[in-house]
């Protein structure tokens, strides 16, 4: 503080400091004004700070990223295919007409029996969270044919599956809103802070699960098999009640890595994912692995499915190439299933 400042006294400077804070707060609030991240009075556009930078999202009445439904004016409580997933499917990071759900809608719109795909991608919702709210989602969005369920990274742990099947840990979280703890909510309700404060999603739920789960030893492999089978059975029985076919599609996310010489290296527990797949298929759930498509596209065209120019260049969320590849694989699978359906209908 300069000599004049010292003359004016600490009290005067404190008043100035207070006013300066308020002014800076207003300035920051101008920036933070649009950052209204609650999922209540929708539809609206929002600017938000996602992992890969600041984006503008056009969300539907359910606060979900469904550009196709907004464009066509289709009702959001009825679709043919429900796509449930995490922030990868929420797709904040890609243009609204480049995410896999939008692409699938476009690819299936001009045919004899068009299919509509409704995205229920929410940041921080992994396979077990999806299983926990599966029935609610089927009720709410009313898919008629298929439920596409995203799974990525490592296979779920026993504790997270147990929580998904008996979701006590999730009870205090409202599935239909973005969840932040009360302290974070208070802080973020202040305009400027909203903009500065990092998003606190149900990651805290996952932290609790990780703490509870610990390491999986060889001794509880059978217990894991049983837990996965229970989860698959629950998914299957719920699906049957609502007349939809569940399809789990898998991608490695951060465990899809590059070797020193540029080789494609999956670093997830491949055997465990295979075991998971086998259990799911035994229970009647279709399992689609996108890995080979990712590998092929990288090795042939040097296209990498994850990462962005403004963040991790090969890590992070699915980019538009990743979404395109996922859409390609899912399209292929659904066309195959549709053809089988037609064939069996013809036989009948």
């Amino acid at each position: 503080m300069s000599a004049e400042g010292r003359k004016e006294g600490a009290g005067g400077w404190c008043v100035k400091f207070l006013i300066a804070n308020i002014l800076a707060f207003i300035l920051l609030s101008c920036v933070g004004y649009f950052y209204r991240s609650g999922r209540g009075d929708l539809p609206y556009s929002r600017i938000c700070c996602s992992a890969e930078g600041y984006v503008v999202l056009n969300l539907d009445a359910n606060a979900l990223n469904n550009g196709y439904f907004l464009e066509t004016g289709l009702p959001t409580n009825s679709c043919d295919v429900l796509v449930m997933g995490s922030s990868h499917i929420e797709a904040q990071q890609v243009q609204k007409d480049k995410n896999c759900v939008y692409l699938l809608n476009r690819r299936f719109e001009n045919q004899d029996s068009p299919l509509t795909f409704y995205s229920c991608g929410i940041s921080g919702y992994f396979l077990t969270e999806i299983v926990a709210r599966y029935e609610v989602a089927l009720q709410e969005y009313g898919p008629k044919k298929y439920a596409l369920i995203e799974m990525f990274g490592m296979a779920p742990s026993i504790a997270s599956i147990e929580n998904a099947l008996s979701p006590k840990i999730y009870e205090r979280y409202d599935w239909r809103t973005e969840n932040v703890d009360s302290w974070g909510k208070t802080i973020r309700s202040l305009g400027a802070m909203r903009w500065m404060w990092p998003s606190r999603m149900p990651a805290n739920v996952n932290n609790e699960i990780v703490k509870k789960d610990g390491k999986i030893s060889r001794d509880n492999v059978n217990a894991w098999d049983t837990a996965v089978a229970d989860m698959a059975k629950k998914l299957m029985s719920t699906s049957e009640r609502y007349g939809v076919k569940p399809i789990i599609f898998y991608h490695g996310h951060k465990y899809t890595t590059l070797g020193y010489n540029g080789e494609f290296v999956p670093t997830w527990d491949v055997e465990k994912i295979k075991a998971f797949r086998a259990i799911c298929e035994r229970e009647g759930i279709i399992f689609v692995d996108v890995t080979e498509r990712f590998r092929k596209e990288y090795e042939e065209n040097n296209v990498w499915p994850y990462g962005f120019c403004n963040a991790g260049i090969v890590s992070g969320h699915l980019n538009r190439d990743g979404h395109r590849m996922v859409a390609d694989v899912l399209e292929e699978k659904i066309r195959e299933l549709e053809a089988e359906n037609k064939e069996s209908e013809a036989k009948q």
Binding site: S2, G5, E8, W13, K16, A20, N21, L23, A24, L27
Partner: peptide, 11 residues
């Protein structure tokens, strides 16, 4: 010691 400078600094 100036209000404008202080505001810029906090911002």
């Amino acid at each position: 010691t100036k209000l404008s400078h202080l505001t810029i600094f906090i911002f």
